[in-house]
């Protein structure tokens, strides 16, 4: 999960999620940053509205549980 935490840290700080930024955070955390994983993550997050996803996360669980009933 380190990669996604790094990305969300940047997002939370209002910074752009770039490969270099993610890598810098991982390295600072003592994590060996896998080039390909960083690339893939940044690419995957492009076009994702993180703020919206987070907003949904806050409400969803309860609503989602319903169909299980």
């Amino acid at each position: 999960m380190e990669y996604i935490y790094a990305a969300l840290l940047l997002n939370s700080a209002g910074k752009e999620i770039t490969e270099d930024a993610v890598k810098a955070i991982l390295v600072a955390g003592g994590v060996e940053a896998n080039e390909a994983r960083v690339k893939a993550l940044v690419a995957a997050l492009e076009g994702v509205d993180i703020a919206e996803a987070i907003e949904k996360a806050a409400i969803a669980p309860v609503a989602a549980a319903a169909p299980a009933a």
Binding site: M1, Y3, I4, Y5, A7, L8, A40, L41, A44, L45, V48, I50, A53, I54, K56, A57, A58, A60
Partner: peptide
């Protein structure tokens, strides 16, 4: 395993946020 795909990237973001929360 945090291998984002178009179908799961949003959920991964949400999981990370929920963890933090």
């Amino acid at each position: 395993a945090v291998i984002p795909t178009s179908a799961t990237v949003e959920t991964i973001v949400q999981k990370a946020f929920n963890d933090a929360k």
